[in-house]
């Protein structure tokens, strides 16, 4: 029973990893790609690690450690990366009502 649950979690997590990949390919600019990448990989990895924990309960502690580490560092690194990308002037999609308060506050015309 537990192993079936583990397998299902594993497939669900892997599906979210595919979603992350699709998001990376389909999204039009860096910041949107980061959005898709972080959210889907975080949930996806948490689910797959949870699935493995169900399949191998004796590994649960170490898997929890990995999951905790990813949960804390993944949003942080994408945040640093997003700021760097914005700062380096990575191209963004030109859209009608685009707001960019960060560029405004820094004083560069976008």
């Amino acid at each position: 029973m537990l192993s079936i649950l583990g397998g299902l979690l594993l497939v669900a997590g892997a599906a979210f990893l595919v979603l992350a990949g699709l998001g990376l390919v389909r999204m039009p600019d860096v910041l949107n790609r980061i959005q898709a990448g972080t959210k889907a990989t975080t949930l996806g990895t948490l689910l797959t690690l949870g699935g493995f924990a169900c399949l191998r309960p004796d590994w649960a502690l170490k898997l929890l450690l990995i999951a905790l580490f990813i949960l804390l560092t993944n949003p942080l690194s994408s945040q640093v990366l997003a700021h760097a990308a914005h700062r380096a002037g990575a191209r963004q999609t030109p859209l009608a009502n685009r707001v960019d308060r960060l560029a405004e506050d820094r004083g560069d015309a976008s």
């Binding site: 990893l17 992350a20 860096v30 990448g37 993944n74």
Partner: peptide, 8 residues
Amino acid sequence: VAFDTLTL
């Protein structure tokens, strides 16, 4: 970004 995703 892609590298980060690949790692995960």
